[in-house]
């Protein structure tokens, strides 16, 4: 078991540009079931991929791969022909919101949006459009989701991951890789790792992912990586207090960041706090999380949280 993605995920690529092509190729090499791509002008064509399989990916494979990915004009066409149930969006920022809503209209279960720089008002519309629909959006501006040795969707380097029982959730991309590598180096594998993205309006929150990890039998402990700004960490802490029974370790980036840069005059008001690292750390500790005070201690903090819970 795992959350969000696994061996039954059938992935569609939206955005067959340079980055989209490079990273979908890495996902194919990892062993992800990639079934289709959409492109407004290339319907009916195929996009060829070939290379050496990624030995850190789905086990039981060897040698090379050769895939001819069918291209469709619309998401609906792709779903009808291939049974795709998830998509990854690499569409450029001006068109990305539309791509997400097209995927939701086609009732995909999961849409992972990598695109960085989508206008905030576009995401405000997307969030409203998704209400009452079955589609879960991860991102935007996120590294994606991975279940080690089963399915990689996004841009994360696959080889740092190990299968295991720690769920990872983070607002940051590269800092997630840093955390995952520390876990793997400490002998702690991951059930799934989820990057929820750094944008102010996103599809899935810390709370959503904590709920999924709490309900996932394969996850024994959680590492949550936040950063300064907003109140997502405080909301996660409030949820943990009530609903999370598994050990949680956390890190908040930006402890030493200078307050100099104003973060939108009135922006912090609504939330009733300034979004400092100190406030977030105290909220998380108050909810029972073991907080790593430096980024190099994230792996150790997870071990500590598990020991306190009588695990490991």
């Amino acid at each position: 078991m795992s959350i969000l993605v696994g061996a039954d995920t059938r992935l569609l690529l939206q955005g067959l540009g340079g980055a989209g092509r490079f990273h979908i190729d890495r996902s194919i090499a990892y062993g992800t079931e990639v079934v289709a791509a959409t492109h407004p002008k290339r319907a009916g064509e195929v996009e060829p991929f070939e290379g050496e399989i990624d030995p850190s990916g789905v086990p039981g494979r060897a040698g090379g791969y050769r895939v001819e990915l069918p291209i469709f004009a619309t998401v609906r066409d792709a779903v009808a022909a291939t049974g795709a149930n998830a998509s990854v969006v690499f569409v450029p920022p001006p068109f990305a919101a539309d791509a997400i809503m097209e995927a939701a209209e086609a009732e995909l279960e999961l849409v992972v949006t990598i695109t960085e720089g989508i206008p905030i008002q576009d995401m405000v519309k997307v969030k409203r459009y998704l209400e009452g629909r079955r589609t879960r959006l991860i991102g935007p501006n996120c590294p994606g989701v991975i279940t080690p040795r089963a399915c990689r969707i996004g841009i994360m380097p696959g080889y740092i991951h190990r299968p295991g029982r720690v769920g990872v959730v983070s607002r940051s991309g590269t800092l997630t890789y840093e955390a995952v590598k520390q876990l793997s180096d400490n002998g702690l594998g991951q059930s799934s790792a989820v990057g929820i993205g750094g944008d102010p309006v996103n599809g899935t929150s810390f709370v959503d992912v904590l709920r999924l990890f709490q309900d996932d039998p394969a996850t024994e402990a959680v590492l949550m990586i936040g950063e300064i700004g907003g109140t997502a960490e405080e909301e996660a802490a409030a949820f943990m207090r009530e609903h999370v029974r598994k050990p949680v370790a956390a890190f908040v980036a930006g402890t030493t960041a200078p307050p100099g840069k104003r973060m939108g005059h009135a922006g912090a008001i609504i939330s009733g706090g300034a979004g400092t690292a100190a406030e977030k750390i105290s909220a998380l500790e108050g909810a029972g999380a073991v907080v790593a005070l430096t980024p190099s201690d994230m792996g150790e903090a997870v071990l500590d949280a598990m020991r306190r819970a009588g695990l490991g």
Partner: peptide
């Protein structure tokens, strides 16, 4: 010189941790 805002902040945190100033 870092890629990603989160890792950039964590790098600054780490430089301070080991006695430097970014």
């Amino acid at each position: 010189l870092v890629n990603g805002a989160g890792l950039a902040m964590a790098t600054m945190d780490t430089i301070k941790e080991v006695g430097g100033e970014p």
